[in-house]
Amino acid sequence: MTSHEKFNYLEYPARDLGATKDFFTQVFNWQFTDYGPEYSAFSGAGLDGGFYASDQCASMQNGSALMVFYSSALEQTQQKVEKAGGVICKPIFSFPGGRRFHFVEPSGNEFAVWSEPQE
Rank of each mutant, 00 (worst) to 15 (best):
Y9D: 01
E119T: 13
V113M: 01
A41K: 14
E119M: 12
Q56I: 11
G108K: 03
Y39P: 07
D48G: 14
D48N: 15
S40T: 15
A14D: 04
G36D: 04
E110R: 05
F28K: 01
K80W: 07
H4E: 14
A53V: 09
G46A: 01
G49C: 11
F24T: 04
C57P: 02
C89M: 10
R15M: 12
S72V: 15
F42S: 03
A53N: 04
Q31E: 15
F101D: 01
K80Q: 14
C89R: 13
D34W: 13
E82L: 12
C89F: 04
F101E: 00
K90P: 09
E110C: 09
F24A: 03
M67I: 14
G46S: 00
H4P: 09
W30D: 02
F95V: 09
A53L: 11
R99K: 05
R100Y: 08
G86K: 05
F28W: 01
L66M: 03
Q26A: 15
G85C: 06
S71F: 05
N62C: 04
P106L: 04
I92S: 03
G108R: 05
G49N: 03
T20F: 06
A58I: 08
P106D: 04
E105N: 07
K21A: 12
F51K: 03
F103Y: 10
M67A: 12
D16P: 03
P13G: 02
E11Q: 12
E110K: 11
G108N: 09
Q118G: 13
G44N: 02
Q61F: 14
F23G: 02
K6Q: 00
A41Q: 15
V68R: 00
Y12S: 01
S71G: 04
E11F: 04
F24I: 01
S54L: 11
P117T: 12
F23R: 04
E38Y: 10
G50S: 08
Y35N: 13
M1Y: 09
S72T: 15
L74F: 07
P117I: 11
E110F: 04
V68L: 01
E105K: 00
F111K: 02
N29A: 13
E75P: 05
F24D: 07
F7K: 01
N109K: 05
N109I: 08
S72H: 15
G46P: 00
S64H: 01
E116T: 11
A65V: 05
Q76V: 14
A112F: 03
T25A: 13
I92Y: 06
T20D: 10
F23I: 13
E5V: 02
S3T: 14
R99I: 02
Q76R: 14
V27Q: 06
A19M: 00
W30L: 09
E105Q: 04
K21S: 09
G98P: 09
Y35H: 15
N29T: 10
T25W: 01
I88Y: 11
K90W: 12
G63R: 00
F95E: 03
F95C: 01
F23A: 05
Q79I: 09
E82T: 14
S54W: 06
